[in-house]
Amino acid sequence: MFASCADPSSLEGLAWLACYLTNGKHLLFYGSFGTVLLLLAVTAPVSLAFGFAGAMASRSRFLPLAWAGKIYTSVVRGVPDIVFFLFFVIALDQGIEWLRHQALCPGWTEPVRQGSDFIVCPEAKMPLSTAPQTVHEIYNFSLAVVTFAIVFGAFAANVLYGAMNAVPRAQLETAHAYGMNDRQTFWRILVPQMWVYALPGLGNLWMILIKATPLLFLLGVRDIVYWARELGGSKTAIYAYPHPDWRLYYFLFLLVFYLAFTRVSEIVFERLSRKLSHGQATAAGEAQRRQA
């Protein structure tokens, strides 16, 4: 990065360290923090949406929909994450390519499955093999978001389903007595009150999601844990900056990052919970009323 870094073997002490910490590989490491934060920022709302849809489906009076919701939550929660990330993603990718294959290459006669190989016409490749590497990375990242959303959506659906059932029955009956229909009762009475019951469960899920990002490397997205392991591993003289096994320091750095991040999340959740309890018929809401 700096001009003085051209020949690392001649450097010593702090100058060496400054060059080492700003080489291309470290810049990628710093960038991967952005990747992880972006993933969390996108995945959290999407999985919440999945969870909400799942919980609504499970509560539905229309039986097939209720079954669909319940099957989704129980099957996905039961499958180990790593299986999901190894096989589901490949299946999803192949499914997309198969659909494109059907649409784009009607004249293709060779079978798509040949032994263990999966072959679609070149135009159906997703993304096209001619696309630049960044497009491939964005595509992999999107696959990761979808997979994370499906997995965590199932857990969120279960939390929200429980929260919806925890809202006192009397509230709903009163709403009906005032002449609200089912839809109005759901959106005006049930949904605003359920969040305070859902919050502890959703908080837990968020904490688990923060720590689940190393699964990203299975999809070819290089996250902070991948880079820490790669950078920290002992480097022989083949590298420009040889050093012994420094993984301990890199992982300590990650530990600090994760602890700080989870601490900030905790504070945010605490505030949110205080805000949501305001005016609620719960013990916390009651305590706030007495204090005021």
Binding site: G24, P122, E123, S129, Y239, A240
Partner: peptide, 25 residues
């Protein structure tokens, strides 16, 4: 066009066979 780009898959963690060098390549 589609055939010409060949994507080479490697691990990037096995020096000197293949590894990620200090500029990240």
């Amino acid at each position: 066009m589609a055939q010409d780009v060949v994507r080479m898959g490697t691990e990037g963690a096995y020096p000197p066979y293949n590894f990620i060098n200090d500029s990240g390549e």
